[in-house]
Nucleic acid binder design. Structure first.
Lengths: 340, 340
DNA sequence: TTGAAAGCGCTAACAA
DNA sequence: TTGTTAGCGCTTTCAA
C-alpha cells in the first residue's frame, strides 16, 4: 500500500508537507506542492480515508435512515440527498429499516461506530433512533415525519405541508362535484397521517359539507390496509362517491379493490391519492395525486446537514415545503344524472 | 468517549483482554470475561469501528453500485443484499451512478479509500469500475450484466437467464394467437439486451414464424426510447399484432404510446414486458411480465461476496437464476374475427 | 491465560 | 514554510 510517507520520500519532503498539499491547508511552497502532486500521481497514491477518519474523529459518510427502500417516495428523496452529498465530498449510506426497530437499532449502532458525519432520518414509529443520535451529538435532520426532537429544537427538520396538500385534494373533489367524500388515512401516531386527516376535514368544513365519521378510515399506510379500508367503505350502507387516500401504498390497495369490483372511476367514484407515483399516468383512468417535492426534500435536508456539520448554524432549523396537486382523470367528476 | 482502556480499567484487566472478550477471540477466563462485559455495559462502551478498521485494514461496509436507484429492479435487489449483509455484520452503502461515468468513478474512489470489504456492482456501460476494483484486490460480485471481468474469472457473477425468459415470453404470445410479434430491445453493447433479443428470435424460429427484421427495434432501455420505438413500430406499413418489450422502463414508454393512440390491448395488440413492475396489476389491462427474481439475485450475490471475503473460495463463481412468466391480461390473445 | 508494546496511516500542535 | 513528533483507538504479536 502506498502511504503518504512513500509520496513524501519520492517528493523529497516530509509527510506533513504531503498532507498539507493534499488537503490544501496551510502555506506550502508552489514548487514543493507541484513535486508532491507529481509523486502522488506517479505512485497512484490513494488516501487512506480510514486513517484520516480515525485521526479526525469523523468520517465522510452520511447515513440516510428510511423505512422502505422500495417506496418511490424515499428513493427519489435519496437522489436529492446524494447530489448534494457528492458535491461537498460525502458519500451516502442508505439504511433501510423496513419499519423494524431492531434493524433500525443496528443501523444506528453502525452510524455511531463508524463515526459517520451526519444522518438524515425518516423515523419509524416509536423510533428511538433520533434520540440516540442526538444524545451522541451526531448532526441529525429529520425528514417527512415530525417527532419530539424536532419540536424541541434538538434536530433539524424538513417536512411538507401535509395539511394544505390534503385540503387542496379534498377541495378539488368537492369542486369536481363529489359530495360524499371518504378519507383513508394512516395511524394516529404518525404526524403525517393526522395532518392529512385535518386537511381533509378542513376542506369539507370550508365547503359546508357534513363531516361524516363513517367515511373516515385509519389504516397502516400499507397496501393491504388500503385494500381493507376501501372494501369497508364500499360495503358500508351509504358508500362514498369519492375517496382521498393519504399515501401511495394505500392508494395501490384501494385501486386494486376498485378495479376488482368493476367500479367506474371517475363516474361512480372519484379518487385522489397522496404522493406521486411513477405509474399515475399509466393506469386507466390516470390517477390524480398530491405530489410531494421528494427530490427537493432530500436536497434541502442535505443542505441543512451541511450547515450543521460545518457549524455554520447553532440553532435548529425547520423547512416546510409545498405539495402540488396533479389533476388527472380519476377525479374528473361524478356521472351527470339526467334531470327527471 | 469511552475507549477500551476505560473498560479495561473498570474491569481491572488490560486492554488486550477487553479486546479479546469483545471479539470472542482466544481463551479468556470466564470470570474476567464476565467482568469485562459488565464494565462495557455500565460505561455504555461503543466500539470505535474506525480504529478497528484502520488496524485491520478493512471495514465492515459493502458498496452496492447501481445505475438507477429509482428503478424497482435495483431497489428490490438491494433488499436481498441488505438482509444477508446485516446478518453477517456488514452495512450496505448504496451508490447510485445514474449511468454517469464520473459519479461511478467517485464512488469507486470512496470504496477504495474507505477500504470497504466488498462491492456488488451492476456496471454502467463502458464502466471501468470492475477493473479498478479487481486491480485493487477488492472482492467484487457483478450483477445483472455480463462483463469481461466475470468471463475471465476475475470476479463473481450473478445473472438471470435472459434468453430463456425472453423465449418464454415470446412463445407465450405465439400460443395466445399473435403472429406478427415485434421486439423492442436495448443497446447491442449490453449483454442483457442481446440475450433477450436472441430469446425472442429463438421463439419465433421454434414456432416456424418468419423473423422480420422490420419488427425489431433497438432503443436505450429508457422510457423515451420505448415510446419512440413503439411509435415507429405502429407507424410502419405493416404494424405488429404483439410486442415484447425487453425492460421495465421501455415498457412504460411503450404503454404510454399505446394508451395515447387508443389501441385496444390485448385485442389489437398483445404486450409482454421484461421485468416485473409494482403496477403490473394496476394498469388496465393488467400487464403480462417476465419477472426476475430480484430479491434472490441480491441475496445470492451477497452470499457469494461473503464466501469471497472469508476466503472460503479462491476461484470465481457464477450463478444463473431463472425468470418467471407472470401471465396477466395484456397478452390474452388477438380479436377473434368472424369467419366470413 | 494475561499483559506490554508496537503500529495501522493520517493530521496537527509545536519547534525550528 | 517545513519538519518532528505525538497520538486517534484498536488489534495482535510476543513475552511472561
Amino acid at each position: 500500500m502506498v502511504t503518504i510517507y512513500d509520496v513524501a520520500e519520492r517528493a523529497g519532503v516530509s509527510a506533513s508537507t504531503v498532507s498539507r498539499v493534499l488537503n490544501d491547508v496551510g502555506r506550502v511552497d508552489a514548487t514543493l506542492a507541484e513535486r508532491v502532486r507529481e509523486a502522488a500521481t506517479e505512485l497512484s497514491y490513494q488516501r487512506n480515508v480510514v486513517a484520516r477518519n480515525l485521526r479526525r474523529q469523523t468520517s465522510s459518510l452520511w447515513a440516510v435512515l428510511i423505512s422502505d427502500v422500495e417506496n418511490p417516495f424515499f428513493t427519489s428523496l435519496v437522489r436529492g440527498v446524494e447530489d448534494v452529498a457528492l458535491d461537498v465530498g460525502f458519500s451516502v449510506v442508505l439504511c433501510n429499516s423496513d419499519e423494524k426497530a431492531d434493524k433500525e437499532d443496528s443501523y444506528v449502532s453502525a452510524v455511531l461506530g463508524e463515526k459517520m458525519a451526519g444522518v438524515l432520518v425518516s423515523p419509524a414509529r416509536q423510533s428511538t433512533a433520533v434520540d440516540r443520535l442526538v444524545a451522541a451529538d451526531v448532526p441529525v435532520v429529520v425528514l417527512d415525519r415530525a417527532v419530539a426532537a424536532t419540536d424541541s429544537g434538538l434536530a433539524d427538520g424538513v417536512l411538507v405541508d401535509n395539511e394544505s396538500g390534503a385540503r387542496r385534494a379534498t377541495s378539488h373533489l368537492v369542486e369536481a362535484g363529489y359530495r360524499r367524500i371518504a378519507c383513508i388515512t394512516g395511524p394516529a401516531a404518525l404526524s403525517t397521517a393526522s395532518a392529512r386527516l385535518r386537511g381533509y376535514k378542513a376542506a369539507l368544513w370550508e365547503a359546508g359539507l357534513e363531516a361524516d365519521e363513517g367515511l373516515v378510515r385509519r389504516a397502516d399506510f400499507r397496501e393491504a390496509g388500503g385494500s381493507a379500508a376501501m372494501s369497508s367503505l364500499l360495503d358500508a350502507p351509504d358508500p362514498p362517491d369519492a375517496v382521498f387516500v393519504a399515501n401511495n401504498l394505500m392508494t395501490v390497495g384501494a385501486i386494486e379493490v376498485i378495479a376488482q369490483r368493476g367500479i367506474d372511476v371517475p363516474a361512480e367514484l372519484g379518487v385522489v391519492g397522496f404522493d406521486e407515483v411513477p405509474w399515475a399516468g399509466l393506469v386507466r383512468p390516470s390517477l390524480t395525486t398530491v405530489a410531494q417535492p421528494t427530490y427537493e426534500i432530500g436536497k434541502v435536508a442535505a443542505q441543512l446537514l451541511v450547515e450543521r456539520i460545518r457549524g455554520e448554524r447553532a440553532e435548529a432549523a425547520h423547512r416546510t415545503l409545498s405539495t402540488e396537486l396533479r389533476v388527472r382523470s380519476s377525479s374528473a367528476g361524478p356521472r351527470t344524472r339526467a334531470v327527471s
